[in-house]
């Protein structure tokens, strides 16, 4: 999780909403990438879960974009996507070939925890009351998402005990 050039003290509500949309967009795209990776590596259950996560992130992003449009119309953006990286998107190294649904859900859970940590860390520097309220709302939403994924995890049957290493051939001398 990294950011670049964000001044939380001078952040306006418009900028904060734009950043929030970028965060959701990034997460949506990453989950789509993960789903594609899992499909390529014949791991359909994890692929299905990541596709579902991508749909959820897309929905959140659309809701935030609608709020932004309602409040600020088509006013130009003052922040860019390049200012954020891996806030709610799972880290690239969280993916593995042959992930079980449990491993996939754990990767998603770690992302929700990470996003929560981002808003918690940013809040003390925020000055604008509207931005503060938005970040608090998003922080609390991450807790809710975390609880949802934890509940889904609890419903899963235990893993087989096999690890992804069990499906990888030992390197053979050529």
């Amino acid at each position: 999780m990294t950011t670049r050039g964000i001044d939380y003290a001078s952040l306006s509500l418009k900028d904060a909403l734009d950043l929030a949309v970028f965060i959701e967009e990034e997460a949506k795209e990453r989950y789509e990438e993960f789903a594609a990776q899992m499909e390529q590596h014949r791991t359909p259950e994890a692929a299905k879960f990541f596709s579902l996560m991508a749909e959820n992130e897309a929905k959140h992003g659309e809701e935030l974009a609608a709020r932004r449009a309602q409040l600020f119309g088509s006013e130009p953006q003052a922040v860019t996507r390049e200012m954020i990286y891996d806030i709610e998107a799972p880290d690239y190294d969280a993916a593995r070939a042959f992930m079980t649904p449990r491993q996939a859900m754990r990767a998603a859970l770690a992302s929700e925890v990470k996003a929560h940590a981002f808003f918690v860390a940013a809040l003390p520097a925020v000055k604008d009351a509207g931005v503060k309220a938005l970040f608090e709302e998003l922080r609390d939403e991450e807790v809710h998402h975390k609880d949802l994924v934890t509940a889904e995890l609890a419903k899963l049957p235990p893993d087989s005990g096999l690890s992804d290493e069990d499906f990888v051939d030992e390197p053979a001398a050529q």
Binding site: D93, A94, A97
Partner: peptide, 16 residues
């Protein structure tokens, strides 16, 4: 084109 690197490969970040 969708990268066909192993999931988790560092090159996914490099291309970004």
């Amino acid at each position: 084109l969708k990268p066909i690197w192993c999931p988790g490969c560092g090159d996914f970040s490099v291309v970004q």
